[in-house]
């Protein structure tokens, strides 16, 4: 177990290093630097600015410097927001994203699994059909369409919920719904098909032959096995919610990291793009690690050996 964790940690560090290096060189391959857009700056000022941020040094020196700072947890200064560091930007904008993301993930899991179980246990009946229709729409309609539809119906027409901003629980309902639409539907479909597969297994017949009640057979014997694929989906789920936040935060004007990231792309703010990418990647790698460990807990057949 310990060996496995150490091994996975090493792989994670390698992954992050690859990410970091790739991002760094991709960023510096970008046509047009951060001081190129809008009205052109006088060459002198531009050179000064570039010297200030070390952009005039050879690429490998910049790379080494960046690594050095990163090892201290310092993601460097932003280029577009005078006097603010990338760390500050993330610390300022991530909490909103994290709240929204956490609510969406919990919502997807609870409702998704519940709907999947209901559908599977009523296979072919109206409950099953209803869940499948909702779930099919959820995976096929893009999140920005769901978001705008929700906004149009609940904010513009019914005036029930706010359409933008992030000032309380009320502001989270629509964005969280839009953000979890895909994953909720995916989990419902996954749970359904997995549970249908599991209840045909021999060990379920054994459990029934022992005289156990239907509830014990389903919730103790079947569901635990059926949830194994759902656990493997947790990694992509986090990634999906994270990516989804780019458009959802933009549509609902939520001051989160996703919106910041999209803005920084438009601004060609190298340092902020790089910092955010590294931050996101670390988040995902850590989540994947947790999911793998969780997987071993729920399925005893998986041996955590190096």
């Amino acid at each position: 177990m310990i060996n496995y964790i150490i091994k996975r940690l090493v792989t994670s560090v390698i992954t992050l290093f690859v990410v970091l290096t790739a991002t760094f060189f991709l960023m510096h391959a970008l046509p047009g630097g951060p001081f190129d857009n809008e009205k052109p700056l006088p060459p002198k000022i531009k050179a000064n600015l570039e010297a200030k941020y070390g952009l005039n040094k050879p690429l490998y020196e910049q790379y080494v410097m960046y690594l050095k700072n990163l090892s201290r947890g310092d993601l460097g200064p932003t280029l577009k927001y005078e006097g603010r560091t990338v760390n500050e930007m993330i610390a300022y904008s991530f909490p909103a994203s994290a709240k929204l993301g956490a609510v969406s993930i919990i919502f997807s899991l609870i409702l998704g699994i519940y709907l999947g179980v209901v559908a599977a246990l009523n296979q072919g009946k109206w409950q099953d059909r209803l869940v499948m229709v909702i779930a099919t729409l959820g995976v096929t309609v893009p999140s920005f369409v769901i978001a705008t539809l929700l906004m149009y119906v609940f904010s513009v027409k019914l005036r029930l919920l706010p359409s933008s901003g992030f000032a309380g629980p009320k502001y989270m309902i629509l964005p969280a719904l839009a953000l979890s639409g895909y994953s909720l539907s995916f989990i419902a479909r996954l749970t359904r098909s997995s549970l249908l597969d599991v209840i045909r297994q021999d060990y379920i017949r054994t459990a029934k032959a022992k005289g156990l009640s239907r509830n014990v057979v389903i919730y103790k014997h079947a569901l635990r096995n059926a949830l194994i694929p759902v656990v493997t989906y947790l990694g992509p789920l986090v990634a999906g919610v994270l990516t989804g936040s780019f458009v959802i935060e933009k549509i609902f004007a939520i001051p989160g990291l996703g919106r910041e990231f999209v803005t920084s792309i438009g601004n060609r703010d190298f340092m902020l793009i790089m910092g955010t990418t590294i931050f996101y990647s670390t988040l995902l790698v850590v989540c994947n690690l947790i999911v793998d460990l969780l997987y071993a807990v729920i399925d005893p057949r998986i041996k955590l050996e190096a």
Binding site: G235, F246, S281, V285
Partner: peptide, 11 residues
């Protein structure tokens, strides 16, 4: 384990 959408955006 890398968020691909981010890389598509960078590319």
């Amino acid at each position: 384990s890398i968020p691909m959408m981010i890389y598509v955006i960078l590319l």
